[in-house]
Structure formats: structure tokens, C-alpha cells
Design a protein around this nucleic acid. Structure first.
Lengths: 217, 217
DNA sequence: GCATTTAATAAAACATTGTTAAATATAGGA
DNA sequence: TCCTATATTTAACAATGTTTTATTAAATGC
């Protein structure tokens, strides 16, 4: 039929993203297909390719929106935390809860493999780095250290919480899994920060940089 | 043609697994297909389904073999480490190196989503738990603590190193990525262990268990 | 107000996928 | 030597992402 101008290109784009999100939320990434998204928004397959270059691009866009949501959640969780150590614990807890509440979309951020080789994969890198920066800010408030060390510590800490989520929170997480994740996160952050406050940090850096692969006996 | 008895069922199974592994190692999971595996071992598609229930089963078997390899690497790396703290650092480094050397197969362990719902997903759980136990053993040698706390700490620590790998080592890791991963791992393990040795561990457990989700201000 | 162009949408076609059903050829026993 | 069981292939199916072609409605020119 080809009715025209009923929705603007931007509207269709937004509708498609929302439709894809609910499909993924309900059926997981495996349930996502171009035709399913298209019929969900009342169009046919070909129209999707008028808006997105391919499905990979749509997925990357969904991931971007998920990262935006995550960031908002983190900021919100941080709202009324006055002490940096508590802030770090709260950040970890908020991340775990977000992962548990949207397991499919959360996993898709990390697990999506673009079919097309030339699709840029690091489009959402900045959105991920924002999270590291949140952690950096708290670490800075906790102890005055050189920038370089703060960056490293933030990355180590945030990656660790992510690892706990990755190993504990499945695609269909049970309440007990989530609770275990929280225990692990608290355990990890607490001990790491204690160690951080006890160590001559720059010294460790000097000793270990650049000789990681063949670690001495 | 149907030549018969040229290879036993078990032989075909092994050939298919090896073929799948080289395909994945070279082209990633995206490059894996039933037909490609079949032709690689000189058979046609249908024959694969005489040996494996479906492709998911084949992938799970490959994952099992990868985990066996990983375990062997970890044991080997541990061979001549006399001090538990050093052992933990070496375990982390060995894990990162394994992930960097076989990124596709390593990621597939965690990223594989079975198409079929009724495919059991936790077949390789024991093989993963063996890794936790290695860490537990070192932690036990480091400090005498109740079993429960050792288990928790091992899980936190190992998940963290995995998280560092997951965030740093891409599907086509550069040398600089791997080096950063090693730095982060050393940083994390060192500070965590320092913190562990400084803290009244059981006290922390008592305080935090069961009130993880809505964390107090 | 009608014809023409242009762009939005649909429909169809293609190659590839996992999986299954049917066909076929071979090995071993009668 | 035939027969049967089974290993193996072949063909077919449905679903997928993507591209190409066809159609229709709006915008434009006169």
C-alpha cells in the first residue's frame, strides 16, 4: 500500500527500538528477529532496513539505550550517599540489581557478536567509561592518589563487580543467585578498599607493571 | 554412498569436536555451522545428528573440553609455587593468558545461548567449580578461616579475575589489552588479600548477609 | 486539476541456517 | 545369495538476515 508520512523516520526508529527491547526482555536475544520487530510496529521487514543499516546496528542502539538506563540508575542510587566507601558499595549493589532485573538486555551488551565484520563494535565505549568515572570519583574522595592509580583501581573494582554479576546472574536469575551476588560484591569491595588503604600503592605499581605474563615463582 | 564402519561413532564424535574447535578458534562462534563441521570431517550434515542431538550439544561438549584444558593449564601453572599468595597471582595470570590465547573458545563458555529450551545448561558446572576449589585451597593455606568464608572469598576473587578478563580481553585481543588485564589482576588480588588479612572477616559476613538489595544509606 | 516525479512501503526473492524425513547403499548374518 | 539392520547421504522444511523489485501515496510542476 505504501502509506507515506504516517510516521517520521525518527518515529519508526524509536518504535523499532522499543519493540526490540520488549522482545528481548521477554524472549531473550534468541527471540529477536527482523520480522518480529517489523510486525510489532506494524510494518514489514524491508522498512526496517530503511531505518537501520542492519540488525547489528539495531542491537547496538538498544545496547546504547540500556547503558543510558544503567547510568541513570547508578546516578540515582548515588543520590544520598555521603561517604565514599558506602557509595562504592551502593554502586555495586545497583549494578547487580540492574543486571538481575534486565538479565537479557544486560548480557546482550557484552555478548553481542556482530555478524558483519565492518560494523564498529566500540560505539558504546564512552557510555561504559562513564561508569568507570563514577567509581573514580568515589575513590578520589576516599584517598588522595595519583590519577593513574585511581584509574587503575576503579577499573579493577568495577570489572570485579561485573565479573561477580557475570558468574552469578544467569539469564533467568533466581532470588538466591542475586543475594549471593550481593554478598560477594560486599565482600570484594570491602576487602579491596581495606587493602587499598593499607598498601603503599605506587610501590605495587612499580613492581608489577610490564612483567605480568611470565610471573616469577 | 553410505560406506559403513569406516569410523566408529566415538571416532566421528571426536573428529567433529576437533573440527569444531579449529573452526571456532579461527572464525569464532559465528563461523560455526553444522555443514562446515560435517564437510571438515568428510561427512554430510545428517551424520552429525546421528552423533549429537543437536548443535547445542556439540557446543556444550566443546566447552567441556575447553574447561578441561583450562584446568590443566591452571594446575600446571601452579606446579612450582611455594607461597599461597604467589599461587593466587599465578592462577590469575594463567587464566588471563588462557583467555587471551583462545578468546573465541573462552568466551563461548559463557556466551553460548542454547536454542533449545530443554537443553541442560549446567552440564559443565562441576568443571567450573574445580577452578573455585583451586582458589579455595590457596586461601586455606593462607589463613585459617571457617569453610564458609573461604568458599565466599574464593568465589569473589575468581569472579573478579574473570570480570577483568571479560572487560579487557576482546574477541581479538591486542597485546596492550592483555598487559592491562595483568596489571588489573595483580592490583586486585594484592589489595584484596591485604584487606582479607586485615579484617575481622566473620564480622563482615554477619553484618551484610541477607540485606543486600536495599542497602542502607 | 492533472501528470510526473520522488520517496515510503510492501512484496518477493535469495542465500544460509538448524533440523528432520526419506532414500540409498553397505556390512554382516541367514 | 539374499535379507535385514543400520550407517550415510540426499532432499526437503521452516526460519533467518538481507537485497531487489514492485507498488502506492504524497509532493511538485504546470
Amino acid at each position: 500500500m505504501g502509506r507515506r508520512g504516517e510516521h517520521s523516520k525518527l518515529e519508526i526508529e524509536c518504535m523499532a527500538l522499543e519493540a526490540a527491547e520488549t522482545i528481548i526482555e521477554n524472549e531473550g536475544y534468541a527471540g529477536l528477529s527482523a520480522r518480529k520487530v517489523a510486525t510489532a510496529i506494524g510494518y514489514t521487514v524491508g522498512s526496517l532496513y530503511f531505518v537501520f543499516r542492519n540488525l547489528d546496528e539495531l542491537v547496538l542502539r538498544v545496547n546504547g539505550r540500556t547503558l543510558d538506563q544503567l547510568y541513570a540508575v547508578l546516578i540515582n542510587a548515588l543520590a544520598d550517599c555521603r561517604y565514599p566507601q558506602r557509595s562504592l558499595l551502593v554502586l555495586g549493589a545497583a549494578y547487580l540489581d540492574f543486571a538481575a532485573q534486565h538479565p537479557h538486555r544486560w548480557r546482550m551488551i557484552f555478548e553481542h557478536r556482530p555478524r558483519d565484520e565492518e560494523t564498529p563494535t566500540d560505539i558504546n565505549k564512552e557510555k561504559m567509561d562513564r561508569c568507570y568515572e563514577l567509581v573514580e570519583k568515589q575513590l578520589q574522595a576516599l584517598a588522595a592518589r595519583p590519577e593513574e592509580e585511581i584509574v587503575l583501581a576503579a577499573r579493577a573494582l568495577w570489572s570485579s563487580v561485573h565479573g561477580i554479576a557475570a558468574m552469578t546472574i544467569t539469564r533467568n536469575p533466581h532470588a538466591e543467585d542475586v543475594q549471593l551476588a550481593h554478598q560477594l560484591s560486599i565482600n570484594l569491595i570491602t576487602h579491596y578498599l581495606t587493602g587499598l588503604s593499607m598498601t603503599d600503592f605506587s610501590n605495587v605499581i612499580m613492581q608489577t607493571a610490564g612483567r605480568a605474563v611470565d610471573y616469577p615463582k
